[in-house]
Nucleic acid binder design. Sequence first.
DNA 1: TTTTGTGAACTAGTTCACAGCT
DNA 2: AGCTGTGAACTAGTTCACAAAA
Lengths: 222, 222
Amino acid sequence: MRNKPRPVGEQVSDLTAGRLSVYLRCLTSLEAAGVKTTSSKALAAAFHLNAAQIRKDLAYFGEFGVRGVGYYVSELKAHLRAILGLDRPVRVGILGAGNLGLALADYQGFQEEGFVIVGLFDTAPAKIGGKSRNGVRISDLAEFKRLAAAGEVDIAAVAVPGDAAQSVVDLIVAGGVRAILNFSRGAVRVPAGVKLKNVDLTVSLESLSFFLARGEASGPIR
Amino acid sequence: MRNKPRPVGEQVSDLTAGRLSVYLRCLTSLEAAGVKTTSSKALAAAFHLNAAQIRKDLAYFGEFGVRGVGYYVSELKAHLRAILGLDRPVRVGILGAGNLGLALADYQGFQEEGFVIVGLFDTAPAKIGGKSRNGVRISDLAEFKRLAAAGEVDIAAVAVPGDAAQSVVDLIVAGGVRAILNFSRGAVRVPAGVKLKNVDLTVSLESLSFFLARGEASGPIR
DNA sequence: TTTTGTGAACTAGTTCACAGCT
DNA sequence: AGCTGTGAACTAGTTCACAAAA
């Protein structure tokens, strides 16, 4: 099970990164089901993926498989967690304590995968000092600045009104946080060296509306 | 401004559909700023897109531009709204009245674009009869079935726990709804003829974690 | 002249198919 | 025999570059 040296300088696509996360979930569910070993073919069949693509995605990070056998579920799972940086706590700060921010703070999926919500941050005095249903405290944006500057935030999630988005993002970047998950509407700019991922709910709904309007439908699972 | 016959049978990619929605937002903001006319080059420069791609995406649906001039902002905006099916109300039902479902029901962006939230639907008796902060009523899932069967729901948004997702999706499909926005974790299957769009919050966070772990960062705005 | 609309060229991403291990 | 890892082939998506129109 020797791993070949990784092509460390090379750029991995966003699509590959997303799939790694999907593979991890598949493995978690297989492990929970008591499955010890699997193969790219079995994974592909069970989760509607392409076997060659799974192999290629994984092979990119090392030789995790055993020819003639396949992959050991918990071993591969551990590798994936390490590759995804989930082998240590990943600390997430949420900016904007509106409905969406509060929902994100209490979202079960994040806790399950080992993300740590460091807090909710807002500027509205009425919100500061409050808590989400599950008890995530709402603090002043200044407190976020302090945490970020102290290197205590790995990822910032932005759930503020569209017109505040760019200034909040600038503040995050100034604080030295290098990964941003943006739920706000409208394009936001980040300097090189900061990874930005946009989740635009309106765009998602509008694409669906588009396909309805076209009379088209059907498509692959992801 | 004669439009050529549209290639009606042809499949439009998800990426194109998403971009149309982005273009619409750009135009809305230009219109609000009082800009009467624009060009693919100007749009590209202002919103960090590629001019040729904008032209190609638009040209796919007709000849909306004027050579030597560009595009008339409000005219193109109206065309885009029609193409996206937003020229009539699009009715959205939200399944799952948890934190996320409630946040979606009250999400400003949807109202602004003309989506109509027909209701929140859940199975928990404690939730049924309640309302979201903004007053969206929570009804029994049976009521969703009735509305769907009556053709009163265009898009279903799924925000239920992962293990309930597939059964809820099956119910939606059985009700004849042909577009689903899925926020639940885990792969969900739909038959051909139903358009499914997954928004997986965990996958989004994990990709960011991955890029952090790799020490890579930077990337284009969308 | 300016800017569209679009074929051609290019780039990225996926799938095939098989050599090489176990 | 069975399955991985991977070059080659293919497919999809983007960008270039220019003829045609206003």
